[in-house]
Amino acid sequence: MNLSADTIQEIDQIIPKYPEKRSAALMVIHLIQDEIGAIDLEACEWIAQKLEVQPINIQELITFYPMLREKPWGKKHLRVCRTLPCALRGSYATCQSLEKKLGVKEGHVSDNGEYSLEFMECLADCGEGPVVMVDEQTYENVDAEKAVLLADLLLKGKLDSSKKFVSYEQALVSESKTKASVKSKSSKK
């Protein structure tokens, strides 16, 4: 397993934050999964050695937690919220739209490895459902029709720069940016 020096450094910084090494398991797993996409047997053994536990102690986490993986998702991973509040606003249709448009079935990775799609349980943004996440970005009120547009932009590689789809996370930053510019303007006065 070839981990980048950065990741190894981060791992070495995280472990001593905990009173017991084993507590760092999820955080270490996240760091490695972020880099290599999944935690295979080799990664399990590596982590186990690092945390001074048995490989099974790591494997039992990978097989339990829904967001931990033995095999990687696609390069872009889409999550659609399935739970009641989102479903009441059409998330099943949203998911079907995305399946069709991206040519990938829910729970699977597309043949070319580019996209994967997953139905998730409540993403804690139920007031703005249907909620769709593209990697780490959260898009709100994505009904079936909007899902087609979102997928189109994604296929063209233009989702991140789109003005039509501003994620919850982007909105936080751009808001504080406009705030900052308001501030600097007023401070000039």
Binding site: E121, C122, C126
Partner: peptide
């Protein structure tokens, strides 16, 4: 953990 379906209040505090 804010995982009870229908709940999205802690999200606001954490992010904002």
């Amino acid at each position: 953990d804010e995982s009870e379906p229908g709940t999205f209040k802690d999200r606001q505090i954490i992010h904002k």
